[in-house]
């Protein structure tokens, strides 16, 4: 005869396994795709109390970059982003670099070594990187004037520079 207790225990374990599977599935989110609207997300600027939102820059081309003081390639990306802001700022480009550091001090220490001539914000809560479903550090997003994601870059290598520049020019030329 089958023990009734055994049956319910088996049921419980099956449900529990399904729950565990669902948990694992949801934590490994799909990356954001080109053509999707840029997720709304806000973060306070590092140089003041003002909070910015990606949607504030509608009408401009936004190069949204997620960085951290502990991220190696970010050190190479900052001079490049300064260059881009200088070159295309007049044409409607706004670079927004969101730090995912745990403290503002860590982010500030990085900025004193690698100064930024563009907007820098801090999201230590991880809401913005989660909304943009980052696949690596640093990650950057080319967002067009209508607020649509045009291109996504995970990581930063010297050889990506030409491609990023071209994508920004294309986005700036599009209406």
């Amino acid at each position: 005869m089958r023990a009734p207790g055994g049956r319910s225990a088996a049921h419980v374990s099956v449900i529990a396994f399904a729950a565990a599977g669902a948990m694992i599935f949801t934590t490994s989110a799909w990356p954001l795709a080109n053509g999707e609207p840029a997720p709304a997300c806000s973060a306070p600027l590092l140089d003041g109390g003002r909070t910015i939102n990606v949607a504030d820059y509608r009408g401009k081309v936004v190069y949204l970059d997620f960085w951290a003081s502990w991220c190696g390639p970010c050190r190479q990306s900052f001079p490049f982003m300064n260059e881009l802001q200088r070159e295309f700022g007049g044409n409607g480009l706004q670079i927004v670099a969101v730090s995912v550091d745990k403290t503002a001090e860590d982010a500030q220490r990085f900025l004193t070594r690698y100064p930024a001539q563009f907007a820098t914000a801090l999201d230590s809560s991880g809401v913005c990187p989660a909304a943009y479903r980052l696949q690596g550090m640093p990650s950057s997003y080319v967002i067009d004037r209508k607020g649509t994601v045009r291109a996504i870059h995970a990581g930063f290598r010297d050889r990506d520079k030409a491609e990023i520049r071209q994508q920004l020019i294309d986005a700036l030329n599009a209406s």
């Binding site: 089958r2 023990a3 207790g5 055994g6 049956r7 225990a9 088996a10 419980v12 374990s13 099956v14 529990a16 396994f17 565990a20 694992i24 934590t27 490994s28 997620f66 951290a68 003081s69 502990w70 995912v100 550091d101 745990k102 860590d106 991880g126 990187p129 989660a130 980052l134 696949q135 690596g136 550090m137 990650s139």
Partner: peptide
């Protein structure tokens, strides 16, 4: 019973799984 031990090991495995966590790229400081 065989069923019981199976269920027990499944539950134990589940407890072990609870120790697994996904460290997101932005949490690797």
């Amino acid at each position: 019973s065989r069923r019981h031990s199976l269920a027990c090991s499944a539950v134990l495995a589940l407890f072990a799984l609870a120790g697994c966590a996904t460290v997101q790229p932005w949490e690797r400081g």
